[in-house]
Amino acid sequence: MKLPALIRTALGGGLARGWRLGSRSPAGAVALAGGIGLIALLLVHAQGVPIAPPAATNALPRMPVVPRPPAQQPPVGLAADAYLDKTPPRETKGLDLVKLGWTYNCMECHKLFPAKWHYDRPMNEHKDLKLDHGNNRFCLNCHHPKNRNAFVDYDGAEIAQADVVQLCAKCHGPTYRDWQAGVHGRQNGHWDAKKGDKTKLRCIQCHDPHAPNFQAMKPQPALVYPPRAAHQPKAAGAAQH
C-alpha cells in the first residue's frame, strides 16, 4: 500500500526538485537523472525476483523477503536480564526502502549516483537526515566515495560498516580510548570475564552519527515519600506522632 505512494514521491519529488534546481545549477540534472534511475532500479529489481500473486488493489509485485531483519542490532546484555529495560537511547531508524524489504546494500542505488562533495539534495531517501555533527558538513566526510557500503579512512581506504568504531575514532581519540577501556558507552553482561561474556555497544547504537548529541528523554517518575498519615487505617491511638 505504501509502495506506490513512495514511488510517486520519489518520482514527483525528484522530478520537481530536479527541475527547479536544474534551472540554477548543473547538479539538478544529476538529480533528475537520479530520479529516473531510481524508478528504473525499482522496476529492474521487481522483475528479478519471483513474482508473488498480485494483490487485488496493488498491481505491483510484493517485495522480496530478506532473511535478516533490516537494521538489526545485536542484543544488549544477557538473555536472563530481559526484565530490565536495556533499550538503547537510539533506535536505528533504517532506511525506508530497507524497511520495505530491500537489502542493505547501499550500492544498489548508489552505483547510479556518483560521489560529489556538495551533494546536499537528497531526493527520497535520506531526506530526513539533518547533519549536525560538528565540522562534518559532507556525506563523504565519513562515507566512502566509491563504496557506499563502507566508511572512509584517512587515506581513502575503506572501513567496513561493522568497524564503524574505527571511523569515529578518527576524530574522537580520547573517547575511543575510554571506549576501548570499557568506561565510555554501555557494557552489559559480566564484569568478570572468567564468569561470562559482556556485550559492548558500538558508537552508533547510542549516538545518531548524523546528529550525535543525545536526545533529551522523559524522566521516570520521582521517588516520593508516601503521605502515610493520609491513608491511615482507623487505628484509635495511631495519631500518636
Partner: peptide, 17 residues
C-alpha cells in the same frame, strides 16, 4: 492499643518516612 496497631502494621502508622 496504638502500639498494638503499630506492631501489626509496621511503623508506617507513625507517619515517619
Amino acid at each position: 492499643n496504638a502500639w498494638a496497631h503499630q506492631f501489626v502494621e509496621g511503623l508506617q502508622t507513625t507517619g515517619l518516612t
